[in-house]
Design a protein around this nucleic acid. Structure first.
Lengths: 407, 407
DNA sequence: GACATATTGTTCGGCGCGCGAACAATATGC
DNA sequence: GCATATTGTTCGCGCGCCGAACAATATGTC
């Protein structure tokens, strides 16, 4: 029941049907590979004749290739089809407060190399340094393949259309046109995205999860709380490209001050910093980057806190559970607003899921509007897989597989 | 950049292109009527030849008709095309705590008749009474035209798929299969929807507003706060059909008790009841349907409060402005989460827009994450046009014009 | 009034593409 | 050697967009 936008639509031409079906075929191959033409035809409910032609076109476009011959109980053996991903590369960059992460991967998201180094806050120096590292990485690990672009993830507000960093308080960047700067230095297409939305993109495009329903919210708890909304298989970016910021919805208008300037944001109650602050008895209202730096120096993280909780530190356990409760209350609000098919959770605190699941769940029941809604599936995603970097890569790889625009 | 759902898609057949273009043509005619074939061809960037055939098919399907001949400076005069709406009718029903609203209208949303009567809470009696009124109305005002269905709007949780009222506290209905009951009594197709989402549907399908961007949130402030989200021209319903409930996001976890059972919901701060409670000095935490009944008896409404504010009652003005401030804070959260192209506002309090606009705006600036976001257009919709009833009608009329499902 | 010009709406051949059926290629079992 | 089964290709058919020609209809101008 979508309404057609009569000021900005695409009519169907005589090649539209083919375009649509070719793209569907590519996606079915991608998700079910290896797969034969005959199987593809059955899945698509088309005749083998048409599928044969579609496949031939995809082979000519070098989007797929024929692999080994499969086994069959009787009759002619099938030729398996695969999506060409190994020699199509993307560079992923994740700029965070302390470290910058740089990854080279192929279009399936397979990691070929990774570098982690101290973040350079000066934009010209950062760009110069990054270009050097990218060139070296491509010459070494990326030899013999084509790099199709660089995806950059920034903690803060970015405009994906223009590639400008509007405001990244953790980096001290405001109104920085990071896209053209990196593009000029590396001579590669660059896409910039916010960290929460990048994680959602990674989940949508690079994970083999059951995103079948294709409406979900990704919630990543780290220094802040990054979130991204996917509706009907499409990332929500919004008018000003700031959509999805559940982290700054209020829990209490008179609550502790948040890094965004407002008071009582969800993030201020459930972020790693909040969890640690509870343990050390800091005043939540007076948290600042200063505390983040201090934590970094002592290299005491939420993971350490979880260890202490597991070895019987009651204070640690109660700090973690407190964050878990606020996490659940926020998730309930997400459920009431978006009512997604699932919520994906990431971040250090998910390593303590066995310790907090009950707390989170009961907090959800407390505020969810229906019983069914409170049972929204929560899916924990392992943090060690660098979801932000995978999201950066998805920025480059996704256009190849996206649905064509029609009507 | 939408991802194709490979477990549930529609391939393009040899009639798909025609289906798409025919539907686009219908919508362009609907929004620009009267329009000639030649103009239609220019708007659609197609040849007149194809458009002629499309138009002929739409005429055969009785979706459009040829009207008068237009004027032209030179050359052959154009034949104007119109969408056939006058003899296609829908019944709209809005069941509220005190009154039930029943409207007969055509597919353009033009009102043919309206009845307002006391709500009958017993479901069998309600159904019987409704069926009687509907039959009478169709016999009288609807003579000579076809009624294509009944749209029903309920204040509370409904499952649009099954037509069940899950929980409507204001009516005391829980788990009532209202759809089959009304369908059986009237022998007409019935669709049920929640009031906030219905308003959004009305705005999307029946108003000639600039919903061009086609992502917006509708916020209706009445006894409660009803909201509906439209993303990319499609109403968000969610997994359990409860999506869009911004009314129950928290403002303060320890805030006043809300009718939903939770504490500190936005609704509890900015609804009509909250506004009146502030004026009369009631404890916000102890509000109940009892107070609503009392207000009804005294027939003192927010409109009366606004009159008092205009005639110099400082206490009235401050009560209204307090609600305005909370309204703005909630809108800021909506902007941060959805970042819509616009927010539509309805409800009695919008009659005092000149008194509260500044308060609302400054509250938005307070919590919106970027300056651009805080400038999200707010559009006031006049309450006397019965948005909920129009939404109910849209439930019936929309499928005729909706985009075909592809890929 | 004849003719040039302009605009709307229709018709027709060309070609892209899905559909179904026939056919070639290839494997197994008896 | 032959029946059977399965994969993958080819081809005629009809639908539908495209461009161009053409018919219909109106207004000026001489």
């Amino acid at each position: 029941m979508r309404k057609i936008n009569t000021t900005n639509f695409s009519i169907a031409t005589r090649t539209t049907a083919r375009d649509i079906n070719r793209r569907i075929a590519l996606n079915v191959i991608r998700e079910r590979q290896p797969i034969s033409r005959a199987d593809l035809a059955r899945h698509m409910k088309m005749t083998r004749g048409v599928v044969s032609v579609l496949v031939q076109e995809l082979i000519v476009q070098e989007l797929i290739y024929e692999g080994a011959t499969g086994e069959a109980a009787r009759g002619r053996k099938p030729t398996f089809l695969h999506v060409r991903t190994k020699d199509r590369l993307a560079i992923a960059v994740d700029i965070r407060f302390t470290k910058t992460y740089l990854m080279l991967c192929d279009f399936s998201g397979r990691q070929l190399g990774i570098e982690i180094y101290d973040t350079v806050f000066s934009v010209p120096d950062f760009t110069k340094d990054l270009a050097r590292r990218v060139k070296k990485m491509l010459k070494g690990l990326g030899a013999g393949a084509v790099c199709e672009g660089i995806g950059v993830v920034v903690p803060g507000m970015v405009d994906q259309r223009t590639g400008r960093v509007l405001n990244a308080p953790a980096l001290g960047w405001r109104g920085v046109d990071i896209r053209s700067k990196i593009a000029a230095a590396t001579d590669l297409p660059v896409h910039v995205e916010n960290s929460g939305r990048a994680c959602a993109l990674a989940q949508l495009w690079l994970e083999k999860a059951e995103t079948a329903g294709q409406s979900f919210v990704y919630v990543s708890v780290s220094d802040g709380v990054g979130t991204g909304i996917v509706m009907n298989g499409e990332l929500i970016r919004g008018r000003d490209h700031i959509a999805g910021e559940f982290g700054h919805m209020p829990i209490d208008l008179d609550g502790p001050r948040c890094m965004c300037g407002a008071n009582g944001c969800w993030e201020a109650y459930t972020s790693n910093l909040a969890t640690l602050a509870r343990y050390f008895g800091w005043n939540l209202s007076q948290l600042s980057p200063k505390h983040m730096k201090e934590m970094e120096k002592n290299s005491f993280t939420v993971l350490d806190l979880i260890s202490r909780a597991r070895t019987g530190d009651a204070k640690a356990l109660s700090a973690i559970r407190a964050s878990g409760r606020f996490l659940g209350l926020g998730l309930a609000t997400i459920v009431n607003i978006i009512n997604p098919d699932a919520i994906y959770l990431a971040g250090e605190i998910t390593n303590a899921w066995d310790l907090i699941e009950e707390t989170v769940r009961s907090a959800m029941v407390e505020r969810a509007l229906t019983e069914a809604a409170s049972r929204t599936p929560l899916r924990i995603t392992p943090a060690q897989e660098y979801p932000r970097l995978r999201g950066a890569a998805a920025l480059i790889a996704a256009p190849t597989f996206a649905a064509p625009r029609v009507a």
